[in-house]
Each structure stands twice: as C-alpha cells, then as structure tokens.
Amino acid sequence: MDIRDLAPPEVRGSAPRLTLTGREEVLIEGHRGLISYETENIRVRSGMGLISVSGKHLTIAYFGTQDLLILGRVQDVSISEEGG
C-alpha cells in the first residue's frame, strides 16, 4: 500500500472539499474549472464529478486557481458523475 493512500482524499489531491456555511456560502476547494455560471445555478468541474450549486442571486465572490467561493441564497448542492 502506498503511504499516500493513508492520507485523506482532499490531501491526496484527488477529491475536492466542499464547505457549506449556512445557506449563504459555498466554498469549493480543489475545483477544476467553471462550466456554467447563471444567477440561479453554478456548475463546477471537480475531481469527483460535476458540482452543481442552485439557489438565488448567486455570485462568485472569489475565483482562484484552487478555490471558488459562491455567495447567495443556496437551495441545493449536488454532485454528479457527468462531466467529472
């Protein structure tokens, strides 16, 4: 077994980390690019698939090489294999 397998997935670099704070903030760490951005839906490519954040008045407060911070009224966060 490789010693790297003992590390958590987000450390290994394969899996993104999603942090939802209340209904107002979603932080996606380790994303692989933005697929679409609308005020009611933002879709982001990640190592484990497509992350879709739905809500109202969604804005991208920060879009960096690793992190993406979404603000707004979050209603739904989902992950699908499609586009991963």
């Binding site: 933005l34 951005y37 005020t39 804005t59 991208i60 407060a61 920060y62 879009f63 960096g64 090489t65």
Partner: peptide
Amino acid sequence: MNEACRHEIRLKNVKR
C-alpha cells in the same frame, strides 16, 4: 474565467 484562472488571475465579486 477559466482562462483567467489558469493565468493566476483571481477574479472577485463576479456577478452575472
């Protein structure tokens, strides 16, 4: 936006 991200340009307060 992805292209800017690749060039390490950090966009803030992006609003549609």
